[in-house]
Design a protein around this nucleic acid. Structure first.
Lengths: 142, 142
DNA sequence: GTATTATATGCAAATGATTTGCATCTATAC
DNA sequence: GTATAGATGCAAATCATTTGCATATAATAC
C-alpha cells in the first residue's frame, strides 16, 4: 500500500511536472480537501509549514495543475469574485452551495441528455457547461 | 403608442429611481442590446454622447438597476473575469456561448423539475441556479 | 557526487475589473 | 425658487490574479 506522498509524486511525474516541496504540499492540500479551496485558503494553510511561500507560487501551481487536468477550477461565490479549485477525480459534476454557510454538496450532472438535444437543435458543437445551484441548507434554515 | 424614452422613464419612476441623463442612456443601451453587455461596452458607447461620463457612474447604475431587478448580471466568459448585464424581461433563462466568436443564444431553463427533486433529496431550500453552456457555433466550426 | 541547464520560486510591482471617498452638481419635493 | 437627498465626476483605493526578474533548485548527463 503506497503512501499518499508517493501517490501524489507519481501524479506529478506522470504529467511531466517537476517535483518541488511547494508543489507537493499544494497538491496534498487539494487532494485532502473535502470541498473546493481558494488560493488564499491554500496560502493560509501552507504558510505555517512553508513560511516563505508566496501567493504567486500558489497561483502558478494551481493554474499549472488545472491545465494538466489534475485540478478543476470552480466559481462558487454568487458574486464570482474568487475562484476555488478542487482535485479532479474524473467525474463531471456540479455543486449545490448554501448561500448562508457556504457548505457545498456535489451534484451529479443532470444535463447529459439535454446537451445532445441542444446540439441537434442549435447546431452548435457543445463543448462544456457549468451549473451552480444556490440554496439554504437545513442547518441554516432553522 | 408610447415612446421608448417614456417607457424607460416609467421603469425608473416605478422603481423609485431618480431620472438622470446618464441613467436613462445606460438603461436605453441595455434595453436595446441584443445580447448582454459589459460595463466597458456601455462606457465606450456612451462616451460619444456623454463625454464626461465615468466608468464609476456606469457601474453604480448597473448595480442599482440590478438590485431593483431591472437588469440581470451574467458571467459569460469562460474565465469569469468580466461581468455582463442584460435587461430582465421576466423570464428565467440561460445562455449558450460560442467560445470562438462569443455569439450568444438564450436557452430556456431545463432545470425546473430537477430543482424540485433536488430540494426533496437534499432538504436544501433551493433559491436559484446558474447554467452556462459553451460550444462552437456552426459559423465558427467551418 | 558534480556540473549543466531548464524550470520554479521569492519578491515586488503591475494589471484589470470594480468600488469608494469626497466635493460638486442636480432632480425632486415643498 | 429653495432646500436637500441623492447622483456624478474625478481620483484614488481595493482585491484577485498575473508578471518580470534575479536567485534558487530539480532533473539530467557525466
Amino acid at each position: 500500500m503506497e503512501k499518499l506522498e508517493d501517490i501524489l509524486k507519481n501524479v506529478l511525474k506522470g504529467n511531466d511536472i517537476r517535483i518541488t516541496r511547494q508543489r507537493e504540499e499544494i497538491l496534498k492540500i487539494l487532494y485532502e480537501a473535502e470541498r473546493p479551496v481558494t488560493a488564499k485558503k491554500v496560502y493560509s494553510i501552507l504558510r505555517k509549514k512553508l513560511p516563505y511561500i508566496r501567493l504567486s507560487t500558489i497561483y502558478r501551481n494551481l493554474n499549472l495543475l488545472e491545465e494538466k487536468d489534475i485540478l478543476r477550477k470552480v466559481e462558487l461565490n454568487m458574486d464570482n469574485r474568487e475562484s476555488s479549485f478542487e482535485f479532479f477525480r474524473g467525474e463531471h459534476h456540479h455543486h449545490l452551495v448554501c448561500i448562508s454557510c457556504q457548505e457545498i454538496i456535489p451534484l451529479e450532472c443532470p444535463l447529459a441528455e439535454y446537451e445532445k438535444r441542444l446540439q441537434k437543435e442549435t447546431n452548435y458543437t457543445i463543448i462544456d457547461h457549468k451549473i451552480k445551484v444556490y440554496g439554504i441548507c437545513p442547518e441554516c434554515r432553522k
